[in-house]
């Protein structure tokens, strides 16, 4: 069977906003602490306590791949992610404009575009996230987990409704 390919599954409801994922990402890729060079970023609404980690979705029909004028972006066959070929990339940032998630970044220090490369199959953001707001799972499992969550909510609501009805 063809490998399914694993993906980052982000559940922002769990995120505590600590940004360790940004730190370990920049250390892993650049050997430095510098969140502006991280491939993942936690977007925050502090006054509401809402934290949403944003990273590359590794889109199947990826706008970044489509828009690249020099075909520097392609799909890596082994890990099934969108990869930048820096020998070809001209740093035009067309992909940065095209990405609907803002997940393609431009590193102003290295002067190159940067994106999630799944750390060769051992994503550091996942390795360090104790709360498991970021997980690395088989692509087909994501919707299964979501189904389970939804089913749990539904059944809880049903029970509550039944209890209320019983009180009438």
């Amino acid at each position: 069977m063809e490998p399914m390919g694993k993906v980052l599954m982000i559940n922002y409801e769990k995120c505590t906003g600590c940004r360790l994922c940004e730190l370990v990402c920049s250390v892993m890729h650049e050997g430095v602490s510098n969140p502006s060079r991280s491939r993942i970023k936690v977007v925050k609404w502090e006054s509401e306590g809402l934290y949403v980690p944003i990273s590359c979705q590794q889109c199947q029909d990826a706008p970044c791949v489509n828009v690249c004028p020099v075909k520097a972006l392609s799909r890596d066959e082994t890990l099934d992610f969108v990869e930048v070929d820096y020998d070809v990339c001209i740093g035009c940032r067309a992909c940065v404009s095209a990405c609907p998630f803002g997940a393609m970044s431009f590193d102003v220090i290295a002067k190159k575009v940067i994106k999630c490369d799944l750390c060769d199959g051992d994503p550091q953001c996942v390795r360090f996230c104790e709360i498991e707001a970021v997980e690395y799972v088989d692509a087909d499992r994501v919707s299964v987990f979501k189904k389970r969550d939804a089913a749990q909510r539904l059944s809880a609501a049903q029970k509550e409704a039944a209890a209320l009805q019983a009180q009438l």
Binding site: V24, E30, V32, N34, F128
Partner: peptide, 21 residues
């Protein structure tokens, strides 16, 4: 700030941090 703080031994620091956590 967006200035690098260079980590002296990045991979060791990552691995040890995991153990520390």
């Amino acid at each position: 700030g967006t200035m690098d703080i260079k980590i002296a031994h990045p991979m060791d620091a990552l691995n040890y941090n995991r153990r520390f956590i």
